[in-house]
Amino acid sequence: MRRSRSGVFARVILATGGAYFVTSSTLSVFCIILFASGMPRVDVVALGMMLGFILYLCLALWVFSSRRLWQVLTMFVLVLTAENCIFFVIGH
C-alpha cells in the first residue's frame, strides 16, 4: 500500500498523541459527570481507566483506517474543545 511519508507521520502522531488526548479528556469529563451523579469516586476512576484503554484502541484504529485524515482531525479537535468546555463549566 502506497502512502506518502508525511501522511504516515501525521497518522502515527494522530493515532498516538491525538487519540491519547481525546481519550484522556473524555475520561476526565466522564469522571466528573459520574461523580456528580453520586457514584463513589474510587469506582468512577477505576471504571474510567478500564473503559479508557478500549476507547483509545478504537480511536487509534479509526485514525489508521479512515481514508480522509482531515475528517478525523476535525472530529478530534471538536471533541477536545467540547470536552474542555464541559470541564471548564462543571469544573472541580
Binding site: 484522556s24 469516586r41 479508557g52
Partner: peptide
Amino acid sequence: IILSATFFPSNVKAVYPNPRDYFFE
C-alpha cells in the same frame, strides 16, 4: 490496567484534589 494511574493521571486529577488519595483508596 495495573499501570493505568500512570497513563491517565488527568482522570484521577478530575475528581481527586490529591492523586495520592486515589492510590491509597
